[in-house]
Amino acid sequence: METLIIILAGILVMIATYLFLSKNLIRVILGSAIFSHAAHLLIITMGGLKTGSVPIVGEKPIAYTDALPQALILTSIVIGFAVTALFLVLAYRTYRKVGSDQLDGLRGVRDE
């Protein structure tokens, strides 16, 4: 199971890298979102996918799944949301101001 999920994460990273390198600003942001999905999948896999009960104390199973990676992912999902929201708004502002969503149009200004 772990192998399968890791291959899936790898494919996500491939897609995200491809999008990240494209010229369109929205594709770059989509790429960054897919990057974070891949990282979250990787964290949950790294904690081990052994079968166990959901980590709620009320249940009385033999084993629980590891609760720590789930807490880490929850934190990092929220952070990812915030960054993506900011990124999208900034892209919109840049589009309005610069008039282009192509990264070619965002070249730096040399020596004013």
């Binding site: 960054s32 990124f87 900034l90 892209a91 502002r93 840049t94 101001k97 610069v98 200004v109």
Partner: peptide, 17 residues
């Protein structure tokens, strides 16, 4: 600032990942 901050965010999203 907008032009540069787009790049700044992109590179930092990548490094945080």
């Amino acid at each position: 600032q907008l032009k540069e901050s787009i790049k700044y965010i992109a590179i930092n999203v990548l490094s945080s990942w």
